[in-house]
Design a protein around this nucleic acid. Structure first.
Length: 392
DNA sequence: TGCAAGTCAATACC
DNA sequence: GGTATTGACTTGCA
């Protein structure tokens, strides 16, 4: 029942040669929603007023979109109109609340998205272009009835800090553990092997060979794509662009601030490494520890705000009106309002989000120290092959 | 078959 | 009650 499965039946019109360019006529009224008025993830409303092209075709033909500008605008509209992510996700995108939250908070750059991954952004863009988008969602909200019975819930495994640390340590040593290693880990941590496997899948972003990278990076962790996305956003923020910082703090900081040591991704993809270099965040100067990508990068990134032009816009996907780099797609998906605020920097945070007050700074320092401590122990442990010798 | 990307959905958090 | 996080799962591809 994936949204993408039936979305091919949705049609669009007047897009030949200029995909997504036409202003949509309107979404169908809620009463015409095939789902019967109660949208579910997987049954997004039909695309507004286009016929002849499936959503996949539209996505394939779409020029590059400024995913960050789109999500920023969507967040604004939802907030301004008191519309929730769940309603928006289920009605417009065919996604669940959590997915919407993730997309809105950590949009990946267009060029890093697969066709499937681009689809929600195309839907968002079309929704933004619909002059009646808000009122229709409001109607949906009014019509929405409380759902039926709660399904039997499956217990969720919640890994403890020690387990996470041990897994990260194991990952650092062996991103692709053998079944035997997985079993050993599962046994030692008292977890199911499937949990360990899933954790590695989730944490792993790519099978990087650390020797392929700057030697200075090889003490840092690999990460899954969602962590890498956070770094991308932080880079935007650091570059002085319209970053998530403008709405209350970097998600990646959230990851590292949590003291869990997430987001410690030293083996970034080529693009991000370029970006970091472009930002003047000296990799060699911060080699070997995750602190440079957690707490401390923030201040350094902030210090780099003065040179946003150095940012590789093609890599970051930040290019747009007002940026120093051109972007092909924005002529069609113009969101100049959002992009024009690119002067926002990490120091320009609205009061709605976690402010960078002295108290926060102290907290950060405290957590940075804690993180360094963890790193120290991990580095120490890294020299020991036998997991039983790991010290946590 | 293994991996990466994308998403779901339980639950923590505010 | 809405949003963020994250373990689990699905899908598509090489």
């Amino acid at each position: 029942h994936k949204p993408w499965n039936n979305s091919a039946e949705e049609s669009v019109n007047g897009l030949a040669g200029d995909p997504l360019a036409s202003q949509s006529s309107s979404l169908k009224p809620p009463s015409e929603d095939p789902s019967g008025g109660e949208s579910q993830p997987g049954t997004p409303l039909p695309l507004p007023g286009h016929s002849g092209l499936s959503i996949q075709e539209m996505v394939a033909m779409s020029p590059e979109l400024d995913t960050y500008a789109i999500t920023k605008k969507v967040k604004e509209v939802l907030t301004d109109n008191n519309l929730g992510q769940r309603l928006f996700g289920e009605t417009i995108l065919g996604l669940t609340q959590g997915s919407v939250s993730d997309l809105l908070a950590r949009p990946k750059p267009w060029h890093k998205l697969s066709l499937k991954g681009r689809e929600p952004f195309v839907r968002m863009q079309l929704w933004l272009q619909d002059p009646h988008s808000v009122e229709k969602l409001m109607d949906m909200k009014r019509l929405e009835k409380k759902g039926g019975q709660q399904q039997l819930k499956k217990a969720r495994v919640v890994l403890g800090p020690e387990e996470k640390e041990a897994l990260k340590k194991a990952y650092q040593q062996k991103p692709y553990p053998s079944p035997k290693t997985i079993e050993e880990l599962a046994s030692q941590l008292n977890l199911k092997t499937s949990t360990v496997i899933n954790w590695f899948h989730n944490y792993r972003d790519f099978s990087a060979n650390i020797s392929d990278f700057d030697a200075g990076l090889n003490l840092c962790f690999y990460s899954r794509s969602r962590i890498r996305r956070e770094l991308f956003i932080e880079e935007i923020q650091a570059a002085g662009g319209v970053g998530p910082g403008s709405e209350g703090g970097s998600p990646s900081l959230r990851g590292c601030k949590s003291g869990e040591g997430d987001s410690c991704d030293g083996t970034e993809s080529e693009g991000t490494v370029e970006t970091r270099q472009g930002l003047g965040i000296g990799l060699e100067d911060h080699r070997g520890t995750c602190k440079d990508q957690g707490m401390e990068v923030e201040s350094e990134a902030g210090a780099s705000n003065n040179s946003p032009a150095q940012l590789d816009c093609t890599t970051s996907g930040l290019a747009g009106p007002g940026s120093s780099c051109g972007q092909s797609g924005l002529g069609i998906f113009s969101l100049t309002e959002a992009s024009s605020t690119s002067s926002a920097s990490s120091t320009n945070i609205p009061s709605s989000g976690p402010a960078r007050n002295p108290r926060d700074n102290n907290l950060r320092k405290k957590k940075a120290a804690n993180l360094n401590n963890i790193i120290h122990r991990l580095e120490k442990a890294a020299s020991k092959e036998d997991p039983s010798e790991w010290e946590f």
